[in-house]
Amino acid sequence: MHFLRSTLLAALLALAAGAAQAAFEACRDFFPNRTPPVIADSDRLIARDLCYDAFAILHSGLRKTPIFVVERLSPEQIDDAGDETRTNRFFADARLRAAERATLADYKGSGYDRGHMAPAGDMPTAQAMAQSFSLANMVPQAPEHNRGLWAKVVEKGTRQYVKRSGHTVYVFTGPVFPATPKTIGPGRVWVPAALFKLIYDPQAGRAWAHWSDNRDDAQPTRPLSYEELQRRTGIDFLPGITPGY
């Protein structure tokens, strides 16, 4: 009963603030309390929810990138992921309208990597691995940032935390854009100014976020509090939850 009241209250507050909550009816288990984030101005972003085997995406047809990607990571999933071979078969997601999705042509010759938001290294099965190469799961990412700081510090560090914790942790990843965005390709895919990765540990009651500029020379920074990430992004990732830091 308490959970139902909290969910209803979050939905009413979202409507009152002009925000919206995506449905994710087929994959609500990816979210804490099975409650997706509340997004301001989601209609303007042409937001569509996409469910995959090991992650879910709220996708922007305006930006042609994720708004956020969510994973429910466990130590067992990470162990299984170590057995899978990276496929590198990128593809445009046919569930999105042609005018709303990135294509391989958009990234070709752009100077940017196709940067995973839900990492291939987290995928526990061959099918989940293949799905992670959907361009709906990608953002244009500075190559050295993608392969260096982001992969070796942020993504690897997140997996190490989940392994040490011994239990399931929720992870939200996404891009943040400048007021005047740069775009790539004939489809005009938006290039992020920064990326974030939010880790919420429900057993510890804590949440914190990595924030990293999308540049080859980006340096590690101190993690943000949940409140600061919410302020910077305008997204309530954890409706009804007030985590510690």
Results as ranks from 00 to 15, higher is better:
A179W: 08
A179S: 11
P186Y: 14
T173Y: 13
R188Q: 06
V171R: 05
Y161T: 01
V176C: 15
I184H: 01
S165Q: 12
V162L: 02
T168P: 13
V169F: 09
P175G: 10
K182L: 10
T168I: 08
P186I: 08
T183S: 08
Y170E: 03
V189L: 05
V171Q: 05
F172Y: 14
V176F: 15
G185H: 13
F172D: 11
T180V: 15
F172R: 09
W190V: 04
P178G: 11
Y161R: 03
G174W: 09
G166E: 00
R164C: 00
V176E: 14
H167R: 12
V189Y: 02
F177I: 02
R164N: 00
V169A: 14
S165H: 13
V162D: 00
K182D: 11
P186H: 14
F177P: 09
R164P: 02
T183V: 08
Y161M: 00
G174K: 13
V191H: 09
T183I: 06
H167Q: 02
V189S: 03
T168C: 06
Y161N: 06
V162Y: 03
V169E: 10
H167L: 04
T168R: 12
V189C: 02
G187F: 02
K163N: 03
T183A: 03
G185I: 08
T180C: 14
V169K: 10
F177W: 06
G187L: 01
T180W: 15
G187A: 01
P181H: 06
T173R: 12
P178I: 02
V162H: 03
P181Y: 05
T180I: 13
P186S: 15
V191P: 11
V169H: 12
G174V: 11
V162W: 04
V189R: 02
I184M: 04
G187M: 00
Y161S: 07
T183Q: 03
A179L: 08
K182S: 14
T168H: 08
F172H: 11
Y161C: 01
A179Q: 12
P178W: 07
V171I: 06
R164I: 06
V171L: 02
